[in-house]
């Protein structure tokens, strides 16, 4: 390399327009620098190298707020904002009170975070901001395939909600209510975190299933490939390997690790419905969710449990099967299923 090009290199590193272009490019600066490079065949290489040096420079010690602190802080900032919004001009002496309130709110960090992400928009012209927090939601009887900004594929089960930031920050945080199967794109630098109501799943790249419906007591995380770290609200944690699942029965209890039956837990994503000595009430609940119907029981819930396996079957076919062994008749009327015990 000649001295002249070395001078250019040093000049570039000292040129703040150049730095701005490397760190925060815009169509205008792209255009400008593209033209500048074109003027001399040697410039392209030097520019590329200068970019390398700029982009390689970073803090040796990178600090990141612990997840919990991040959430607590956001909660208290939003609480402060809302207080100020409703009581303008009284802020001076209320700071302490609101610090205390914020601390109390911190218990609800996870829930609040989700709330904050999906807060109804008050103003239609902030659509551009909404793009920052993407919400995917399914109703009864629906499933949804979602591709996240990092290429991770998610299959969202019925009556579920997935919230995430676009693009992802330093961590890939997603918030889930309901059930979803994740096939996470590997990125060692950016952990992928699924925040369900009481259980948090942390992975670098792997596939697993998370189930966390608000109406169900049990939350679970089941691993198909790779290694998965889970932690519960009570501070308990576990590392799961393929074919293992974590079960959390209550927010206060510790996470339990057990094996699971693949089809029974993950099968839903491939249209597979498996019942294994499942109580009839639960069979109906799952059918309601799966097919988007509601069951009516004019003369009560049939007793017993049911074992069976259906792949991409119609509601009618399943009801026939279950009805025979559990002795009931059914009638399907649009979105209603009427069950009469025999």
């Amino acid at each position: 390399m000649t001295n002249a090009s070395n001078d250019t290199f040093l000049d570039l590193l000292q040129n703040e327009h150049f730095i701005k272009w490397v760190t925060q490019p815009s169509p205008e600066s792209d255009h400008y620098w593209a033209r500048w490079i074109e003027q001399d065949p040697g410039r392209g290489r030097i520019v590329a190298k200068a970019k390398n040096v700029i982009q390689a420079t970073s803090y040796k010690h990178q600090y990141q707020m612990p997840e919990e602190t991040y959430g607590t802080l956001l909660t208290s900032v939003v609480a402060h904002h809302r207080h100020k919004h409703t009581n303008p001009g009284k802020e001076a002496n209320t700071k302490k009170v609101w610090l205390a309130a914020a601390a109390a709110l911190a218990i609800l960090v996870c829930a609040t975070l989700v709330l904050v992400y999906v807060l109804p928009t008050r103003n239609s012209d902030i659509a551009q901001l909404q793009r920052q927090h993407v919400v995917k939601e399914t109703l009864k009887g629906q499933k949804l395939r979602v591709k996240l900004p990092d290429g991770t594929r998610v299959i969202l089960n019925a009556e579920s909600k997935l919230t995430y930031e676009q693009p992802f920050g330093a961590k890939r945080n997603v918030f889930l209510t309901g059930e979803a199967f994740f096939d996470v794109t590997r990125d060692e630098q950016k952990p992928f975190l699924v925040h369900a109501s009481n259980i948090t799943t942390r992975v670098l790249g792997t596939s697993f299933n998370v189930r966390s419906y608000p109406e169900e007591v049990v939350e679970s995380v089941a691993v198909v490939t790779g290694k998965v770290e889970v932690s519960g609200g009570a501070g308990s944690a576990a590392t799961l390997l393929p074919a293992q699942q974590a079960i959390l029965r209550a927010p206060e209890s510790a996470i339990k690790v057990a094996n699971f039956h693949y089809d029974q837990v993950i099968g839903w994503k491939d249209g597979l419905m498996v019942f294994n000595n499942t109580p009839i009430a639960e069979v109906f609940e799952r059918l309601e969710q799966w097919y988007g119907v509601s069951f009516e029981l004019p003369n009560g819930m049939p007793e017993g449990a049911y074992t069976g396996r259906y792949q991409n079957a119609s509601l009618e076919k399943i009801l026939q099967g279950v009805g025979v062994t559990s002795r009931f008749a059914y009638k399907i009327e649009d979105k209603r299923v009427i069950i009469t015990k025999n």
Binding site: Y63, Q64, L74, V78, T121, N123, I126, Q132, E165
Partner: peptide
């Protein structure tokens, strides 16, 4: 500007985009 006018979404945007940068810088 929206933040200055009391818009909550803008506040949250600012928080999400800069809180961790600020933290990292502060810890230096």
């Amino acid at each position: 500007k929206k933040f200055l006018h009391g818009d909550e979404e803008s506040l949250i945007y600012i928080y999400h985009h800069y809180a961790n940068h600020l933290y990292n810088y502060g810890c230096q």
